[in-house]
Design a protein around this nucleic acid. Structure first.
Lengths: 162, 162
DNA sequence: GGCTAAACCGACCGTGGCGCTAGGATTTGA
DNA sequence: TCAAATCCTAGCGCCACGGTCGGTTTAGCC
C-alpha cells in the first residue's frame, strides 16, 4: 500500500471541512460520526493538518476546526505531505534540506545509480498528479458544500452518484 | 515508503542482467556479490520475476538467469508490478479482474467517494511514469552493457558519474 | 461558580508485514 | 561423484501502523 489510512482519513476530514461553511467551526465528533471514523485517532490526524497550517481550531464548547484557506487554494499535494510526510518512493530517499527528498545513493562505483533514476521519476509522477488537484475539486466531487446539516439528506437524494 | 526493498533489489537485478550478454546465464551469486545483496533473499525476488515471464533460468552448474526479452522491450511498469504486485495507492483498491486494481468504495450515501478520485489519479501518475521507462534506459544510465567481466573496472574509470 | 463540550496531549499496545535466515531438495556440467 | 547452481518452504525478529485510554486545558452557558 502506497499511502496509509492517515492519508485517507485526513483527506476525508479536509473534504468534510470544505463542505462546511467556515463561519462556525465543525467538531471532530461530527466528522467522525459522518464518516464513521474513530474519534481518538482522528485527533492525531487533524493535529498534523494543524501543524502544517492547513486547518485552524477553536477550543472549548462549540469549538472545532475549519480550513485555514479557501479550498480552491489548497492543493492536495500539501494535504498528503502534511499527513504522510515527504513522499519517498524508496528508503534511500532522505531530506535534501529542500522541499523534496532525494535519493541518497551516490554514484555506484563510477556508474550511475540506476534505481535512483527510476524512483525519482516515479516520485515526480506522484507529486505532479497531487499538485494538479485542489481540495475544491474533491469537495465538488463529493457533492459540493452543505450549509445546513439537514440539507445533507436532501442533497444526497438528488445528487447523481459516480 | 511507497515501494519495498523487493522492488529495489529486483530492479537492480534486472539492470545487472541487462548489462550482461544473454548468451551465457548469470548466476545469482555474481549479482549478489556485485550489488552487495543477500543471496537467499534475492532468490525469492528473482522467483517473482520468473513467474512473470521476465527472466528465464537454467539449473545446475554454470546455470543462472537471463532476460526473457531484450531490455528495450521491457517496460519498468511490468518489472515493478511483478515485484510489488498491483499498484494500489490505498487499501480500498481491489482487483477488478482487469490489469489494474480499482477503489472498491461505492457511492458514499449518494455522494461521490472523494478519495477515490484522488487515489485513482495518483495511481495513474505512478503507472504512467513507470510505463514511460524501459529497462534499456536504466541499463544505459548504469553505464551500458558489459560483456567481459574485467571490462567493468575500466568502464567505471571512464564513465562520467551522475 | 459549576457543568459540559470540545480541543489537546502523551503513553501504551496488539497485529501484521517486511526483510532476512536456515535448511534442505533437485538439477546439471565437469 | 562432486560441486555449483536453481528451487522450495518454514520460521523469526523487528517495527510501523491503526487504534485505545486517560487525562488536562479551554471556553461557552446556565
Amino acid at each position: 500500500m502506497i499511502f496509509s489510512s492517515k492519508a485517507e482519513y485526513g483527506v476525508r476530514l479536509m473534504v468534510e471541512l470544505g463542505r462546511q461553511a467556515p463561519e462556525h467551526p465543525t467538531s471532530l465528533k461530527a466528522i467522525a460520526d459522518a464518516e464513521g471514523l474513530p474519534l481518538a485517532y482522528l485527533e492525531q490526524v487533524v493535529a498534523r493538518l494543524k501543524r502544517a497550517g492547513l486547518v485552524m481550531s477553536a477550543r472549548g464548547a462549540h469549538g472545532g476546526y475549519w480550513l485555514a484557506r479557501p479550498a480552491e487554494e489548497i492543493s492536495m499535494d500539501e494535504v498528503v505531505q502534511a499527513l504522510e510526510g515527504a513522499i519517498a518512493p524508496m528508503e534511500c530517499f532522505v531530506s535534501d534540506h529542500t522541499e523534496r527528498v532525494v535519493c541518497s545513493h551516490g554514484p555506484d562505483g563510477g556508474r550511475g545509480c540506476a534505481t535512483k533514476l527510476l524512483w525519482t521519476r516515479v516520485q515526480g509522477g506522484i507529486i505532479r498528479s497531487l499538485q494538479e488537484m485542489t481540495l475544491a475539486e474533491l469537495v465538488r466531487f463529493a457533492g459540493g458544500p452543505v450549509v445546513e446539516r439537514t440539507a445533507l439528506a436532501a442533497d444526497a437524494a438528488t445528487t447523481p452518484t459516480d
